[in-house]
């Protein structure tokens, strides 16, 4: 990224110096349907922001707009002081390397080993020839093994991903995201495909690794109790708009219930 970018200079000088991600007036639409109607959001270092809201509120779209897996229709996304929206594909790919992502359905390559899957987190930094022949650098493999050990799968490193349980697969997903050495973690419903006890373990792991490495986290989550237990800040989304924002302690249950009301009915 261009270090002399005037926008970056501005970011350094403004008071919110530790801001990693700044979203301004973000809009997105699927055809005719407006999904996001002007979202503003800041994520700073050591933040663990939970986005809650009923299904269809635009949570998943919001997360995917940030790394442009879904193309936003308007607004600004400043990541590390650089607006991501106007970036051309090569520059976008470089920016994506700094943003790790964890998925609801884990999204592993089932037929490859745990180690292969984790190493793949580093594809963006690996030359085409080296990656296509799978001649990974030794230090990359070592780093992947260390991460696999950190998420507690040391003895599974050379097993195929389709042999693992749901909780174990999500741990592989976490290791893969960390392999990018990301400056931001996007997490999309990490626990919806897991049973409650394992969901808690997975959330604990995400929280721990993020704290160790000072990586801010932006996490979609359906389960309010989990959100309250793990986040430092919470954003409630409804119909593509942010309805409230605040620390877990300061949020009253009534307003949370309110945005879920439509779904209950």
């Amino acid at each position: 990224m261009n270090r002399d970018n005037p926008e970056r200079l501005e970011a350094v000088m403004t008071p919110a110096r530790s801001t990693v991600l700044e979203i301004r007036g973000l809009e997105a639409r699927y055809g005719e349907r407006q999904v996001l109607r002007g979202i503003d959001l800041n994520v700073a270092r050591d933040d663990f922001v939970a986005i809650i809201g009923p299904s269809g509120s635009g949570k998943s779209t919001l997360i995917r707009c940030i790394n442009r897996l879904v193309e936003p229709s308007g607004g600004k996304i400043l990541f590390d002081g650089v607006d991501l929206l106007p970036l051309a594909p090569p520059a976008l790919r470089r920016a994506r390397r700094d943003i790790g992502m964890i998925f609801q359905e884990f999204n592993l390559v089932e037929r490859m080993t745990v180690l292969d899957n984790v190493v793949m987190g580093r594809l963006g930094d690996t030359g085409t020839l080296r990656s296509l022949t799978r001649l990974w650098r030794n230090d990359v493999v070592e780093e992947a093994l260390a991460l696999i050990e950190r998420v507690g799968l040391a003895e599974h490193a050379r097993q195929r991903a389709d042999r693992l349980s749901g909780g174990q697969r999500q741990r592989v997903g976490i290791a893969r995201a960390l392999m990018q050495r990301p400056k931001l973690l996007l997490v999309d419903e990490p626990t919806s495909s897991l049973d409650p006890r394992i969901a808690r373990d997975v959330m604990t792991l995400i929280r721990e690794v993020a704290c160790e490495r000072h990586i801010p986290v932006l996490c979609n989550i359906h389960d309010i109790d989990l959100a309250l237990a793990f986040c430092t800040r919470m954003v409630g989304l409804q119909h593509g708009r942010a309805r409230f924002e605040g620390q877990p302690g300061s949020i009253d249950r009534a307003s949370v219930q309110h945005i879920y009301e439509a779904e209950v009915l």
């Binding site: 080993t113 799978r134 001649l135 650098r137 493999v141 490193a157």
Partner: peptide
Amino acid sequence: MSVGQRTP
């Protein structure tokens, strides 16, 4: 370094 790819 090549990692554990099973070949027939």
